[in-house]
Design a protein around this nucleic acid. Sequence first.
DNA 1: ACGTGATAGTTAGGCAGCGTATTGTCAAGA
DNA 2: TCTTGACAATACGCTGCCTAACTATCACGT
Lengths: 153, 153
Amino acid sequence: MPDDFYEQTPDANAAATEGVMNTIRTADMFFDRIGRLLRPLGVSAAGGLVLGILRDHGTMSPSELGERLIVTRATVTGLLDSLERRGCVIRSANPADRRGLLVSITPAGLTVVKEVRTIIHGNERDWMSVLSDAELRTYVELLHRIQDRLVRS
Amino acid sequence: MPDDFYEQTPDANAAATEGVMNTIRTADMFFDRIGRLLRPLGVSAAGGLVLGILRDHGTMSPSELGERLIVTRATVTGLLDSLERRGCVIRSANPADRRGLLVSITPAGLTVVKEVRTIIHGNERDWMSVLSDAELRTYVELLHRIQDRLVRS
DNA sequence: ACGTGATAGTTAGGCAGCGTATTGTCAAGA
DNA sequence: TCTTGACAATACGCTGCCTAACTATCACGT
């Protein structure tokens, strides 16, 4: 998002606008870099998140995956389609509820998620290295405050 | 993006990861809220950006729009298709270069962009009101430092 | 004058997200 | 029992973003 979108606004909103626009721009950059780093592994950024969750928390339903990812169930369906095609996860019937499924990570998926983490962690550390430890703590705290405001719509 | 994706990482990367993930999550929230606010106007968040640029800088080529938006020309094609369908912009031939086009905002587009700004500015101010002026300045400065690091890949 | 490479825009195909509608299943109350 | 409302997953259509390939045009160097 370009700086100049709102440059004609001379009032007190300018600072708030800059905060919002720069947040979005920075996140876009992160997401873009992560996607490029993961492409050689054959998974998307979203797919990497799914595998990480399955690795840490084990088999779960698509709905629960959606809650953890903060996306809709419809989106989870598509993500699982991709991951299943690549052999990273399998869907099986939930014996306790015939409406539901259970999603499990495969050995191939475990291999992928291991590589994902190695790649991403190093880069994240690098990206944030321009902030001191104290600045990073401040930054995260400010983000949390903004998020708290946002969840209250 | 869920907090717990990387929770099993006990080393020094945890703070950096939290910074990256929270940036993405916050931006997602911003983008979602903006999209919902703009839906009644019949334009997407990206469409609103295009109209704002055209309003501030006048007629320009799709390529230049793409540079300002930091998206590819192919993406601009799609955005202009939508905006043209809604009567907000028109494409015309560039008399100086028969390869190129010129995109102009229409009176209807001007009306829309005015409403967009009114709606968005008030909300941005509200969202960022949880930070003091000094904190907001700090926040934006930290974002700029991170962005500077990111543009150097 | 004429290739040759660069540029402008589109198209095609893919992924990821959404909202909405649909189908099947569960659970609770009449 | 049976109906009714909630829930699980999917299908469909839309937007937005990408890359790659294509056509048309330009601009430069020979």
